[in-house]
């Protein structure tokens, strides 16, 4: 595979208001989220609090609630919301013709 973008799959493989992960050998998983209004976001699958798997949280609006201690993380920025402080790295992602494309460089960096 070459080019700037990695083709991950069809958008509807991610459940609405749900998440799927992309595994990167030797690194953190990347969590792909699909919101109720059909947007896609990608974050490292690590909560800034104690590394909870954000992919396993509940997605509402453009936010995910971490399954471990209920921190709310903004999907677009990776920032913790409300009183909590912390940020998880985002990965550029885009949709093209229903395909989900992840930024290649950032994805590979996740393994570094």
């Amino acid at each position: 595979m070459t080019g700037e973008w990695l083709d991950i799959g069809w958008i509807d493989e991610i459940p609405l208001r749900g998440s799927r992960v992309v595994q990167v050998d030797g690194g953190d998983d990347i969590a792909l989220f699909r919101t109720g209004d059909g947007q896609v976001f990608a974050l490292r699958d690590r909560c800034p609090h104690q590394h909870g798997r954000l992919s396993q949280g509940i997605v509402h609006g453009a936010t995910v609630t971490c399954p471990l201690h209920n921190w709310r993380i903004a999907l677009a920025s990776g920032e913790a919301q409300g009183e909590d402080r912390g940020c998880t790295p985002t990965v550029p992602v885009k949709l093209s013709g229903g395909r989900v494309l992840l930024c290649r460089a950032s994805t590979l960096r996740a393994a570094a």
């Binding site: 991950i8 992960v21 050998d25």
Partner: peptide, 9 residues
């Protein structure tokens, strides 16, 4: 299942 898997090496 993961949606995709990458092996950077």
């Amino acid at each position: 299942a993961p949606m995709a898997r990458f092996q950077p090496q």
